[in-house]
Design a protein around this nucleic acid. Structure first.
Lengths: 165, 165
DNA sequence: AATTTACGTCAGCCTTGTTGACTTTCCAAG
DNA sequence: CTTGGAAAGTCAACAAGGCTGACGTAAATT
């Protein structure tokens, strides 16, 4: 069973040192990941929370508030604060459900779509540059590790979105 | 050069759809990444900010306040609030510099090391499970993409830490 | 001697998360 | 038809953790 060179069965990538590097990579990379949208949002009266709401409404037009709550993993009070300003400012349209009138279905307006595009263009540009620099093989690995890192509930959310698209 | 199947030069991994998936993977995975330490910290009077400080002090014992400020990318007021409680509670020791007495060098105490271990054990356990599930090749790609996603300044920080270890 | 650097601190503000209590609306089951 | 409970919204209060601005002190540098 043991590898001739080390006796560690080739699991060098699982040393604490390797894991620590991965942890720090996640930390620093996430900063980059959010940096561009954050820059755009500052001065627009909105924050990261608004970005997230806009992103997932764009992703699943007509989604309900409960749905969004599950995806974002925050309380309805927290989400509602964000949603209210987006609706007041005319970025999001909230429509009473036809089949179940208790539910509110959420859609981006033209203005909302414009902001979404601005934010996601910036975020995608960075992602694209990183993907291009790393190559397709690395990207596949990137996605594999991230998916394995999610909580099961989040993985379900993620896969639901993945298919839905 | 063109791939026979598509004529898109094999850059299918750079479609907006692929990039969007990567963006959502980052979002959901980061939640998992912070979930375990957050759980441990709640009820201990500390938060994510304390975790970060403890992590990087552990990582670079004797580091100065300015150094930590660069790494964490927050204001000194913000860091100081966190550092003060850690020092008061005896998790961190602050030592006047010998060569330059303006600087404070930071070290974890025994208690601090204990907390650090508890937090990083949890975080590493998740990382290890993800790495194991994805395999060494995927891990290499994961690290490549993350590194490419960082701001240059952060990449410098990251690599400094990498070598130093 | 004057300036700059490193650090600490006070005061105040903002965003975004939390809990708890309560109301309104509405569907569905008894 | 009544009622129980789900979905949504709202009010109030609070906490963590960012931020800016102003100020003070000690030590190093010029």
């Amino acid at each position: 069973m043991a590898e001739p060179t080390s006796g560690n069965e080739g699991l060098l990538f699982l040393t604490d040192e390797q894991l620590r590097k991965g942890i720090e990579a996640m930390f620093f990379a996430y900063r980059g990941f959010t940096a561009d949208p954050d820059r755009i949002l500052e001065g627009k009266d909105y924050g990261r929370a608004h970005h997230r709401a806009v992103h997932f409404i764009h992703r699943s037009p007509g989604t309900t508030v409960s749905n969004l709550l599950l995806t974002l993993g925050v309380t309805k009070q927290s989400l509602n604060r964000v949603l209210r300003t987006l609706i007041e400012d005319g970025l999001v349209r909230s429509e009473k459900g036809r089949v179940d009138a208790r539910e509110r279905h959420l859609y981006l307006t033209e203005t909302g779509l414009t902001l979404e595009r601005e934010l996601s263009d910036a975020q995608r540009a960075r992602m694209r540059a990183a993907y291009r620099a790393a190559g397709p093989q690395a990207v596949a690995g990137f996605r594999q590790v991230l998916e394995a890192m999610m909580d099961p509930e989040m993985r379900r959310q993620y896969n639901r979105l993945k298919e839905g698209g």
